[in-house]
Amino acid sequence: MAFLINLLSAGIRSGTAILFATVGEILAERAGVLNLGVEGMMLMGAVTAYGVAYSTGSAWVGLLAAAAMGGLLALLHAFVTITLRADQVVSGLALTFLGSGLSAVVGAPLVEVAQAPRLPAFNIPLLADLPVLGPILFQHNVMVYIGFLLAPLAWFYVFRTRPGMELRAVGEYPAAADVMGVSVYRTRYLYVVVGGVFAGIAGAALSLAITPLWVEGLTAGQGWIAVGLVIFAGWNPLRAALGSYLFGAIRRLPLDLQNVGFFLRNPTYGYFMNMLPYLFTIAVLVIGSREAMRRRVGAPAALGQPYVREERGK
């Protein structure tokens, strides 16, 4: 029982960064822009947060800087794909390369430095004392709590508000949205940048609260996993939360199993446990894709297609 509580609690903690990144990517894709640069934006967010927090002494300033950095990189992607109408896949890949390389360069001196200030962790009064639920849900750092609010708020925004409806319209049928007076370009720019801001925050959550430190390649593919979870989530922020926490738990599993007798005797089997998160992502994608085919719901119809006002259709 203690093992399970530990696992779930750690899973929620380690799934939080992926949750931010996934929700951000959902918003961008809902507007019709695929951004495969999440991994790069997360890495740049993580290193920016760590560096700024270290030099200013404030983790919150670090978090803000990471958000700005994520937004800035996403703006680059927005310009290349929305204004220049270049291929979204290739531009996103370029962004990931750029972010991975640049974060290694600017982060090299940070690997050695003393611990940067962390984002605060605190127990929620009363709730933290609940048996079982208390330790799983209410004894965390502040990013986890923000994460709890994020998914329902994002869901409400996307499905129950007017701007949310306009966002979906731009992703499904931009020409119609345009006719209704919604600026397709502005909407897409906005949500691509918002997605980048979320990815930056996700990186900051890693380097300032969850891991918390900076090493080269800190994200270890979590940005890519976020892109995969978007499909599993069916572009729905609530399901994204489910996927992220589940994923976090699976990511945690190898660490928790290290001390179990079998793995203690055969430590090399741990490498198979390390494969689990990535295999899980593939499994989740298969499930998501099957469901999308069966229920005929799926990607926003205009995902990946540039919008050109003068041209007809789409």
């Binding site: 962004l95 390369f97 750029l98 390389g101």
Partner: peptide
């Protein structure tokens, strides 16, 4: 050349400029 990420960073920049510039 130190730090180690320079080559990767340049790769990213080159790809980005090529992708965007090609369209331009």
């Amino acid at each position: 050349i130190q730090p180690a990420g320079i080559a990767q960073m340049l790769q990213g920049v080159i790809l980005f400029v090529m992708v965007g510039g090609e369209m331009l």
